[in-house]
Design a protein around this nucleic acid. Structure first.
Lengths: 243, 243
DNA sequence: CAGTGGTCTAGACCACGAA
DNA sequence: TCGTGGTCTAGACCACTGG
């Protein structure tokens, strides 16, 4: 038997967590004081503190000086959204993934377009369009702009069969990203390229990424409705707000 | 001046974090050993350890015994998705929010519908439809099923002007939730209720919530395309996988 | 095998804020 | 006021694992 290799602070955390999730402790209830827990578990205060700090960071409890620690109320304003790598996703289903480049140009930002001007940062833009294809059927149209100011190497990325997103992920570290998810009716070009009827619904994902304050890329992906959807899961209360 | 009230372990963490985000430390680089950092900052090892543990929990670094701590490569397939409370969202824009109930029935699960059977858990379902309205204009249609097995009190929730989602949030703690996001063309009923042309695109959010193993509710919200979209933001690398 | 991170101790001082 | 959590110390032993 390999029994207890579980750290004590982790065990304390799990104990309290299960009390909360089982309902024995309800939101608002006070958790035993640190000195009570250190007596209960026969350990030093730092050990208890580590356990409670972890629960606090996870958003399971709120800690107030002089008052104690309390089970926090689930607020549910944030969930984890999976942003799948399309290639991995498709091949995970046992289908054949392919990326087909449609156009590729280097051009300056359109002056009236704030998005492009901000992205370019005074430099040129690499403008790439392509199709994501599963088992020979195009399911997504991607229009991407890359700041050559931020990623000069991108101009050499002439790998025809590689999606620019995958290339970027491997070559350019990013620090921040933002996704916008919406639905629109397919315009003429999109409908034609994705072989769908005009005005058919599309799921649109727009993604912007930064490295520090520098804009890296802007991409808009149009998915044929019904062939693709996003899933966000959430377990055990909300995450803490990032600083 | 109020200067330094920032805890030392936090300062150490921020220092290293900015080295990473600025690019001075690249993914794969080794960061100084704990004993080097404790010498550098003139503090105890526990303090350094606390800082590094936090960075590790945040997914910024990987720690390997005998080898040291290393800047982790951003893999990032998950982002934080904001799931806004519609009422708060709308009123935050300075518009007037209103929920108008359309139908409300208690019925058993349709036997051929797995979703409903699983949700009901042998009991009855509360079936509610309603419109979310901003400034007098309906922007979302909501169809919701609530398990009366899990939430018997829901049958008393006769507050006409209160969205069932808001009521549930205040009365029923949940432990797990899942969202599915997709786009579809509006069907006849939806188009009529939301005063949009048939086949106009809709953003669809389907949400399932659990309390432990017990299903609580299933809701489908149809949003008029263009009037609503979801945003997911992400800063500083991926979250750790939850146990 | 030797050095790393992981864990833990038994103290300490302090700021905060509920009483 | 004064008990609480927040932080920190100066040690310690151990498991793991890379060299």
């Amino acid at each position: 038997m390999k029994a207890k290799v579980t750290p004590l602070h982790e065990r304390i955390g799990k104990d309290i967590e299960s009390l909360i999730l089982s309902g024995e402790l309800s939101p608002g209830d006070r958790i035993p004081f640190e000195h009570e827990l250190m007596e209960l578990y026969g350990c030093a205060r730092m050990t208890v503190s580590k356990a409670l700090s972890a629960l606090n960071a996870a958003g399971l409890i709120d800690r107030r000086k002089r008052a104690g620690s309390f089970v926090s109320r689930p607020k549910m304003h944030a969930m984890i959204l999976e942003i799948p790598d399309l290639e991995v996703e498709i091949e995970g289903r046992g289908e054949v993934y392919e990326y087909r480049q449609l156009t590729r140009t280097v051009r300056p930002a359109a002056e009236m377009n704030e998005e492009e001007v901000g992205l370019a940062g005074g430099g040129m833009l690499l403008d790439i369009s392509g199709l994501h294809i599963a088992n020979g059927i195009a399911f997504a149209l991607e229009d991407r702009l890359i700041s050559l100011n931020a990623v000069p190497d991108a101009i050499q990325s002439d790998i025809a069969g590689m999606a620019p997103g995958a290339w970027l992920l491997r070559h350019v570290p990013w620090t921040e990203a933002e996704n916008r998810i919406a639905a629109i009716n397919a315009d003429h070009r999109t409908a034609k390229l994705l072989q769908m009827a005009q005005r058919d619904a599309c799921l649109v994902v727009e993604r912007r990424t930064w490295r520090g304050d520098e804009r890296i890329t802007f991409v808009r992906q149009m998915f044929v409705a019904g062939t693709y959807d996003l899933t966000a899961r959430f377990g055990a209360h909300q995450k803490k707000p990032s600083a």
